[in-house]
Simulated scan of single mutants.
Amino acid sequence: MTTTTTPEAEVLDRTALLRWTTAMALSGTIGAVVLESGAQAPAVAFARCLVGGVLLAIWCAARGWLRPAVLSGRDLGLAALGGVLLVGNWVLLFASYALSSISVSTVVYHTQPLLLVGLAAVLLREKVTRSHLGRAAVAFGGVVLISLGAHGTDGQPVNAGGVALALGAAVLYAGASLIAKQLSHVRPHLLAAIQLGVGTVLLAPALAFTPLPADPRGLLWLALLGAVHTAVMYVLMYSSIGRLPTTTVALLSYVYPVVAVIVDVLAYGHRVSVVEGAGMLAVLAAAMAPTRKR
Rank of each mutant, 00 (worst) to 15 (best):
P7H: 09
E10C: 06
L12R: 13
T15W: 12
A16P: 01
R19W: 10
R19M: 13
W20R: 05
T22N: 10
T22H: 12
M24D: 01
S27L: 15
V33S: 11
S37R: 04
A41K: 02
V44G: 00
F46H: 00
F46Q: 01
C60P: 02
C60F: 14
A61V: 07
A61T: 07
W65R: 15
S72E: 06
S72A: 10
G77T: 11
L78S: 03
L81K: 04
G82Q: 04
G82H: 03
V84P: 00
L85K: 06
W90D: 05
W90Y: 13
V108D: 00
V108Y: 01
Q112M: 14
P113Y: 03
L119V: 13
A120K: 11
L124Q: 12
H132Y: 05
L133C: 13
R135G: 03
G141A: 09
L148F: 07
L148C: 03
G152R: 12
G152E: 06
A160D: 09
L165K: 00
L167N: 02
V171Y: 03
L172D: 00
A176T: 05
S177M: 07
K181L: 14
H185G: 11
V186S: 00
L190D: 04
A192M: 14
G197W: 06
L202C: 04
L202F: 06
P205C: 08
A206S: 15
L212I: 05
L220S: 09
W221C: 06
L222R: 03
A227L: 08
A231V: 03
A231W: 00
M233R: 14
Y238W: 15
I241L: 12
S253A: 15
Y254M: 05
V255F: 13
V259L: 03
V261L: 13
A267Q: 08
Y268D: 04
G269L: 08
G269F: 07
H270E: 14
S273F: 03
E276D: 09
E276I: 06
A282L: 15
A282W: 02
L284H: 10
A287W: 04
A289I: 03
P290M: 07
